[in-house]
Design a protein around this nucleic acid. Sequence first.
DNA 1: GGGATTGTTCGGTGACGGCCGAACAGTACC
DNA 2: GGTACTGTTCGGCCGTCACCGAACAATCCC
Lengths: 217, 217
Amino acid sequence: MTAPQLADLAALLADSTRAAFCLALMDGRAWTAGELARHAGVARSTASEHLDRLLTGGLLAEERQGRHRYVRLASPAVATLIEDLAAHAAPPPRPSGLKAAAKASAESEARTCYDHLAGRLGVQITEALSEAGLLADEPIRAWLTTLGADLRPGRRPLVRMCLDWTERRNHLAGTAGAALCTHVLAQGWAERIGTGRAVRLTPAGERALRQALPTLT
Amino acid sequence: MTAPQLADLAALLADSTRAAFCLALMDGRAWTAGELARHAGVARSTASEHLDRLLTGGLLAEERQGRHRYVRLASPAVATLIEDLAAHAAPPPRPSGLKAAAKASAESEARTCYDHLAGRLGVQITEALSEAGLLADEPIRAWLTTLGADLRPGRRPLVRMCLDWTERRNHLAGTAGAALCTHVLAQGWAERIGTGRAVRLTPAGERALRQALPTLT
DNA sequence: GGGATTGTTCGGTGACGGCCGAACAGTACC
DNA sequence: GGTACTGTTCGGCCGTCACCGAACAATCCC
């Protein structure tokens, strides 16, 4: 490990625009170059060059479809890396302004964090799983199976914790977290709001989750 | 979490000199400003400014003694953050030159990685612990206690894995890893070589470890 | 085909930041 | 006191890099 290598990697995230791209991509979906440019408020040409750097740096993966250039985070490892960085660069705990606080609170009610559930919803589910003693490999596997979730084995650890930087609490990540999120969305228990990471728990989802997880508050 | 915040944090490590500082500090010891300047090959004035940035950025902590300015990594969290980054910026596997390879191999025989053992020694010990079924909270606690290691409870997880970027293998970190490393050095089972991270296993240490851990190869 | 949309390439510009050396301040040792 | 050493401040230099707009290429739709 040499210092220039580390510096080069860090330099990829050391720019506001590229950082905004990566944070936007934390929802696990593929964005087009134009969407990212608009999201970050830069010209398309600028975004194009940034994407080149992030791609050759190995942080992003691309997929071309027609005239569109879709990019996504290269791997879950990249997502956790950015998440760890973001958690460390946590904002100073200054609740400034009621309006801003209310907006932030609404946004953090339920959202996805890369490929699993986060926000208050993610934290509460995780807490309930913990109280029910389900937060270990075998119990969570059994629980997800009874739910009907598709739990395909991968190289990722089954149960992993992910620190939410707004809630400052752990929530379920790893293969189990991803499977749960996929299932919740597929069953219509929650649905995405707009183009961001925010999701909304549906009435059906609330019923289903309460039934499957009685310790949920 | 905003993009500028993430970018600012990443920018701290996006410079070769600052990256070299942080990597040097990964041995967990406190270095003086002059030592770091010589290590990175820059003027003292340059090092001074870099240290200011790393300090205000929260990555480093300082302690002034007389005319000396000692700096160290601010917390274990910072160390793991840098470690994760370094693991991701892994060098391409190019064994170039016999001399370089031999040197690197000697350096990676045994060394510290922040506050625990790494290199081939760290990996082998971890593997032996795994074979002996000791890589869980209770077993490792019992094993360390019989060794006489001082295992004070902390906020850090007891058992944590750390990916060695030269060996590409896991080794024991966390509270248990730190306690083991401290004990091994205190008992004279290994001793530091020079001012770097390298350590050398002593004959006494080899005997003691083989006795305590029969699965060690 | 023509027109609209998406993305890329290229030159030019401006700002930021790393670096040094010289001068200075503070500490240790004789 | 004087000397040596460590660290800091300041001015100035220079390279890098993010940004834009304009021109161009590629695709899709009518």
